[in-house]
Amino acid sequence: MAPPQNRPGLSRTGFSKKAQFGLFTSYVAAISGAALGLVLLIVSLLNPTTFAFARNAAADAAEPAGQISATTRTGGKSVIDVISGYIEAGSKNARLREELAIARSRLVEAAAVESENRRLKALLGVRETDGKPVAAARLIGSTSASTRRFALISAGRRDGVREGQPVRSATGLVGRVLEAGNRTARVLLITDGASVVPVRRVKGDIAGFAQGQSDGTLVIRLIDLGINPLKKGDVLVTSGSGGLYRPNVPVATIANVTRDGGIARIISDPAASEFVVIEPIWQPITELRASDAPQAE
């Protein structure tokens, strides 16, 4: 028989047939585990929603833990905010009061413009889905260790959440629902590489697409390629083209300008949002009133 250094496995197990067989079966089991993993991976790359049921069941099971961690996150954050608010409290206070007064009057103006808008749309006979939210939920988890950006919300099928519905927080767009379980749902954040949101600049008709880059920024690609009119600090909102996302929801602010668009920072940081709201899928339906048609002729 060959000496142990010429038969590597022998030095580990010795000459016992039972031990050698034990090592052999464990290798067989490990390699078949790896092969199973490869098969599952290929299946899930070809058809990503295949194993959604397993993910949803697991997320539903772990939802209570996620709820507790979400409340501790918001609780802890408010303590830090209170303490950090003491720094330069006096001058900041005066400045913030001024800004608040201006913001309040601007809000009143915006509400007036919105109601005028609604009245004009009704005059034209434009019919749209009303923006009443489907559900409100907390963000109870995210894929912090993977380069894919998903988040988990604590509302599911039994709250009316379905695939494709956009999710927004009070400050801006967060993402859209990818898979809906019974009590939880998985949300594709706008910072993920697979998320493309049609956006436009608030001022003017500059339209483009915002695609995530997995590091908290979006890359903006303009539709009209010419002189780049974007400037640092421009606010981008959803344009509503193509459906799905309701228009005029804030998305991002330009941080750097590039040749065909820019790099933008998201406005609504998911870590800072306590509650998010799930809205119905937005469909732009324009119909003229049937009664007007015979009169026009």
Partner: peptide, 12 residues
């Protein structure tokens, strides 16, 4: 289970 933690990350 740690993704259920209080950290909602915008980047890995």
């Amino acid at each position: 289970l740690l993704p259920m933690s209080p950290v909602i990350a915008s980047a890995p």
